[in-house]
Design a binder for these strands. Structure first.
Lengths: 136, 136
DNA sequence: ATAGGTGCAAAGTCTTTGCGCTTAA
DNA sequence: TTAAGCGCAAAGACTTTGCACCTAT
């Protein structure tokens, strides 16, 4: 894989932000620097970068596809109000995975845990009667 | 929601099979009984039925969308060779969910765990040098 | 020089939706 | 009778891909 300005930009966007962006969000961010970049290029690079493991493609169990610069084991919580995605640490996962593997005679190669709910901020906003920050 | 022959047929297909079918598979199965049924009807009904909780829509963490007649808490393992989806029991999930909620100040409303790997049968086929059963 | 990357636009896949007809209650 | 559901076909959302031009090595 050769270097390219666009690919480098795309990777840096995903690595720098803690926001687990969608392809569209990466595209919008990348356009600030490369106004003529195409959505096709963004998808092509996100896929290539996830194939080599430079980033992770995460499919929320509730549908949406996002990209994550953190490649070490961890999981995600999606707030159904503001749609933000938060990281969750789950150190006992390795043991859990092993137990599942053993009990089911299944060789686990990948594991994703997806939680959905309401984040602290949004819950507080509701309880205090403030409009939710994001209309989506 | 009114009764309809097609909806009843669709629900029964999902309830009866342990295969976690895709919308397309439900459609093909339903056509055996209702040759003129449309894919739109299948999607409409699968969505409605999952909204009322008669079945569950499961989005694999690796992309594909499937439907599940089991609505009690359990999880899924997807074999990357034969693409079959197996159920996994995880009784300690409630405790895990609570811990995650508490530690992150996050009110968990849904939780999905998706595992990917190789099932016993496929692994055996490989180790014995037999062609894999499904070319997909 | 040339393999690999880009932008663009077209095409693909999966899913939803508008509409006129049909069916359940 | 009439609200709900169906089949059909068109449209939408998201993603991939073919191609002619450009860029890194």
């Amino acid at each position: 894989m050769n270097y390219s300005q666009q690919r480098s930009c795309i990777l840096n966007i995903v690595l720098s932000k803690p926001v687990h962006p969608t392809a569209e969000q990466v595209y919008n961010e990348a356009r600030k620097k490369y106004p003529r970049i195409s959505l096709g290029t963004v998808y092509r690079n996100l896929n290539q970068l996830s194939e080599i493991g430079a980033l992770k493609k995460i499919c929320s169990p509730y549908g949406s596809v996002r990209f994550d610069g953190r490649t070490d084991p961890h999981f995600h919580m999606e707030c159904t109000v503001c749609r933000e995605v938060f990281d969750v640490e789950l150190p006992e996962l390795a043991a859990l995975e092993k137990r599942i593997s053993d009990e089911n005679n299944f060789t686990v190669t990948r594991c994703e845990i997806g939680l959905q709910g309401v984040c602290e901020k949004c819950r507080k906003n509701f309880s205090e009667g403030i409009d939710k920050p994001d209309g989506k």
